[in-house]
Write a protein that binds this DNA or RNA. Structure first.
Lengths: 197, 197
DNA sequence: GTCTATAGATAGATAGAC
DNA sequence: GTCTATCTATCTATAGAC
């Protein structure tokens, strides 16, 4: 936390928690929530079940740990976005299709465990969405913000449904952002002439 | 199947399978895949575990039964759509926000169990998407079809994340289709003047 | 901080009565 | 077709050694 973005090397004590959370998220995505047992998570992270339970005393704590980690990673990504000067809307659409990125994987895992968990997980996802919406709203206004968020989430969903297996691109166009980005460009033009709302 | 749309009364033998599948889907949505055990599903449908296992000899068969049921219900909805003469794109956007409808609930349940299951579940979801895409493509062409599907899926996702608990509307605008439908109208206009591709 | 061992609960599935 | 056992496996979590 003192120097965000500089993750400690894998295997380090300080990084055990992160390794365990990533192992948990990936297991949920690859084999489903049901298979993401304490045993399986521990094994994937290279520790014993007891080791895991030292860091996360219960499944519930493990889930909440992932939610917390998500918000931290989101902060980092938003810092990166602001530093880059890129359009938030474009960034959101583009990264939504990148189902291999760590943040997208964590997000997808939270979505997968959302209804099995406490409301906190759901609220975390809403909070993340609100952070994006705020950034995009400054750029595009209310109308387009809603559809950009919806587009991004639809892209992320389709990328996930299509692209688990081959590590390359999506199996269909529905999990890519190219058309949505072009649409956004077209809308900016359209809007320059006539008001949408 | 002889008279589609006319479902037998609840409790009927002929309808036990359907009751069990709905109980399974709703449990997955409300309490998560993990909680949707054979015991819980049977109890919710009002039968014993043995009774359930007569109709679906394994969890796997239960899941595949739900996938099959989804395709049947999708057929019915598409028949309804075609009979109504409404625009497929508009229909898709509108129904995507209706997370209380049976078909949306079944779809969401399939999405939730997708990565825990055989590839068949994933392929079923892709097949459903392709059916919609085909209908929309006839109306709007390739470019807009992709974004309409993405929008609809994003709406469905947000409707689910927002709206579990209160049975009314979505907790935010992201799970509603109003803006997306207006966007679609605007695009038709825009397109009438200038080509998008 | 990480391990093994184990307790206690519950899952999926089978067998067989009704 | 639906039920009640019941077997077996596996899960979460605890206790305590190292």
């Amino acid at each position: 936390m003192t120097s965000p973005g500089a993750a400690p090397a894998a295997g380090t004590e300080r990084n055990r928690r992160r390794d365990l959370l990533i192992a948990f998220a990936d297991l949920v995505l690859e084999e489903g929530e049901r298979a993401a047992t304490l045993d399986a998570v521990a094994a994937r992270a290279g520790v014993s079940k007891g080791g895991l339970l030292y860091h996360f005393p219960s499944q519930r704590k493990l889930r909440h740990g992932l939610a917390e980690f998500y918000l931290q990673q989101l902060d980092l990504e938003i810092e990166e976005l602001l530093a880059s000067g890129e359009s938030p809307a474009r960034w959101y659409l583009r990264t939504s299709s990148d189902y291999l990125s760590e943040l997208e994987r964590i997000t997808a895992a939270l979505v997968a465990i959302e209804n099995t968990s406490t409301d906190e997980i759901r609220e975390t996802l809403q909070r993340g969405r609100d952070r994006w919406a705020e950034l995009i709203r400054d750029e595009l206004g209310d109308d387009l913000t809603v559809v950009v968020i919806q587009l991004g989430d639809g892209i992320a969903y389709n990328a996930q449904v299509d692209g688990t297996g081959d590590a390359g691109g999506s199996a269909s166009e529905f999990g890519t952002s190219a058309r949505a980005e072009r649409l956004l460009d077209a809308l900016r033009e359209y809007r320059a002439s006539e008001s949408m709302s």
